[in-house]
Protein backbone atom coordinates (compact mmCIF):
# COMPACT_ATOMS: atom_id res chain seq x y z
CA UNK A 1 0.00 0.00 0.00
CA UNK A 2 2.89 2.23 0.97
CA UNK A 3 4.61 1.38 -2.26
CA UNK A 4 1.45 2.28 -4.12
CA UNK A 5 1.14 5.63 -2.30
CA UNK A 6 4.73 6.40 -3.13
CA UNK A 7 4.10 5.51 -6.66
CA UNK A 8 1.03 7.80 -6.90
CA UNK A 9 2.80 10.74 -5.31
CA UNK A 10 5.75 10.01 -7.58
CA UNK A 11 3.58 10.61 -10.62
CA UNK A 12 1.17 13.19 -9.19
CA UNK A 13 4.01 15.12 -7.64
CA UNK A 14 5.76 15.21 -10.98
CA UNK A 15 8.88 13.53 -9.59
CA UNK A 16 8.92 11.21 -12.59
CA UNK A 17 10.01 14.24 -14.60
CA UNK A 18 13.03 14.82 -12.31
CA UNK A 19 16.30 12.94 -12.08
CA UNK A 20 14.58 10.31 -9.96
CA UNK A 21 12.40 9.16 -12.93
CA UNK A 22 13.66 7.43 -16.06
CA UNK A 23 12.00 9.95 -18.35
CA UNK A 24 14.91 12.33 -18.26
CA UNK A 25 17.17 9.57 -19.56
CA UNK A 26 15.17 9.43 -22.78
CA UNK A 27 14.78 13.17 -23.35
CA UNK A 28 16.38 12.96 -26.77
CA UNK A 29 13.97 10.26 -27.89
CA UNK A 30 11.00 12.07 -26.37
CA UNK A 31 12.08 15.27 -28.10
CA UNK A 32 12.36 13.31 -31.38
CA UNK A 33 8.84 11.87 -30.94
CA UNK A 34 7.56 15.36 -30.15
CA UNK A 35 9.25 16.69 -33.27
CA UNK A 36 7.65 13.95 -35.36
CA UNK A 37 4.23 14.75 -33.94
CA UNK A 38 4.66 18.44 -34.77
CA UNK A 39 5.84 17.51 -38.25
CA UNK A 40 2.87 15.21 -38.74
CA UNK A 41 0.42 17.89 -37.63
CA UNK A 42 1.98 20.53 -39.85
CA UNK A 43 2.01 18.21 -42.86
CA UNK A 44 -1.56 17.28 -42.22
CA UNK A 45 -2.56 20.92 -41.91
CA UNK A 46 -0.69 21.87 -45.05
CA UNK A 47 -2.23 18.97 -46.97
CA UNK A 48 -5.69 20.06 -45.89
CA UNK A 49 -4.96 23.59 -47.02
CA UNK A 50 -3.85 22.30 -50.40
CA UNK A 51 -6.99 20.20 -50.70
CA UNK A 52 -9.14 23.20 -49.87
CA UNK A 53 -7.23 25.18 -52.45
CA UNK A 54 -7.74 22.45 -55.06
CA UNK A 55 -11.44 22.46 -54.29
CA UNK A 56 -11.53 26.27 -54.63
CA UNK A 57 -9.59 26.09 -57.88
CA UNK A 58 -11.99 23.52 -59.25
CA UNK A 59 -14.84 25.86 -58.44
CA UNK A 60 -13.02 28.70 -60.18
CA UNK A 61 -12.39 26.53 -63.24
CA UNK A 62 -16.06 25.61 -63.35
CA UNK A 63 -17.01 29.26 -63.09
CA UNK A 64 -14.58 30.28 -65.82
CA UNK A 65 -15.80 27.48 -68.03
CA UNK A 66 -19.37 28.65 -67.48
CA UNK A 67 -18.39 32.17 -68.42
CA UNK A 68 -16.48 30.95 -71.49
CA UNK A 69 -19.31 28.74 -72.69
CA UNK A 70 -21.88 31.48 -72.22
CA UNK A 71 -19.82 34.00 -74.16
CA UNK A 72 -18.75 31.50 -76.83
CA UNK A 73 -22.34 30.48 -77.29
CA UNK A 74 -23.41 34.11 -77.78
CA UNK A 75 -20.54 34.61 -80.22
CA UNK A 76 -21.55 31.57 -82.26
CA UNK A 77 -25.10 32.84 -82.47
CA UNK A 78 -23.95 36.27 -83.58
CA UNK A 79 -21.57 34.81 -86.13
CA UNK A 80 -24.37 33.24 -88.15
CA UNK A 81 -24.57 34.77 -91.57
CA UNK A 82 -28.19 35.77 -91.06
CA UNK A 83 -27.33 37.59 -87.83
CA UNK A 84 -24.40 39.37 -89.46
CA UNK A 85 -26.63 40.47 -92.33
CA UNK A 86 -29.21 41.72 -89.83
CA UNK A 87 -26.59 43.79 -88.03
CA UNK A 88 -25.22 45.17 -91.29
CA UNK A 89 -28.73 46.20 -92.31
CA UNK A 90 -29.20 47.96 -88.99
CA UNK A 91 -26.05 49.98 -89.54
CA UNK A 92 -27.11 50.86 -93.09
CA UNK A 93 -24.19 48.98 -94.58
CA UNK A 94 -24.25 48.28 -98.29
CA UNK A 95 -22.36 45.01 -97.93
CA UNK A 96 -24.13 42.07 -99.55
CA UNK A 97 -23.33 38.36 -99.50
CA UNK A 98 -20.86 37.40 -102.24
CA UNK A 99 -22.18 35.88 -105.47
CA UNK A 100 -18.77 34.88 -106.71
CA UNK A 101 -16.22 32.74 -104.90
CA UNK A 102 -13.00 34.38 -103.78
CA UNK A 103 -10.26 34.32 -106.40
CA UNK A 104 -7.11 32.31 -105.94
CA UNK A 105 -4.21 34.54 -106.89
CA UNK A 106 -1.12 32.80 -108.13
CA UNK A 107 2.00 34.88 -108.46
CA UNK A 108 4.58 33.98 -111.00
CA UNK A 109 8.21 34.96 -110.41
CA UNK A 110 9.62 36.88 -113.32
Amino acid sequence: MAAKRRSLSFYIGGEFLSDKGNLIKYWKFIFYIFFLVVLYISFHYSMRNIQTQISDNEKTIRTLKSEYLGKYSNLLYSSQRVEIEKKLNETGSKLVPPDEPPAIVKLKRR
Binding site: D99, P101, P102, A103, K106, R110
Partner: peptide, 21 residues
Protein backbone atom coordinates in the same frame (compact mmCIF):
# COMPACT_ATOMS: atom_id res chain seq x y z
CA UNK B 1 -25.16 29.29 -105.30
CA UNK B 2 -24.31 29.83 -101.65
CA UNK B 3 -21.97 26.85 -101.59
CA UNK B 4 -20.44 27.91 -104.91
CA UNK B 5 -19.72 31.39 -103.53
CA UNK B 6 -17.38 30.00 -100.87
CA UNK B 7 -15.54 27.47 -103.00
CA UNK B 8 -12.86 29.24 -105.02
CA UNK B 9 -11.64 25.99 -106.55
CA UNK B 10 -14.89 25.64 -108.53
CA UNK B 11 -14.38 28.91 -110.26
CA UNK B 12 -12.45 28.21 -113.42
CA UNK B 13 -11.55 31.89 -113.77
CA UNK B 14 -10.39 32.27 -110.21
CA UNK B 15 -6.81 31.14 -110.70
CA UNK B 16 -5.03 34.13 -112.07
CA UNK B 17 -1.40 34.28 -112.80
CA UNK B 18 0.25 37.60 -112.11
CA UNK B 19 3.83 38.62 -112.35
CA UNK B 20 5.44 40.16 -109.34
CA UNK B 21 7.66 43.11 -109.87
Amino acid sequence: DKIYAVNPEWNSTSVRECESN
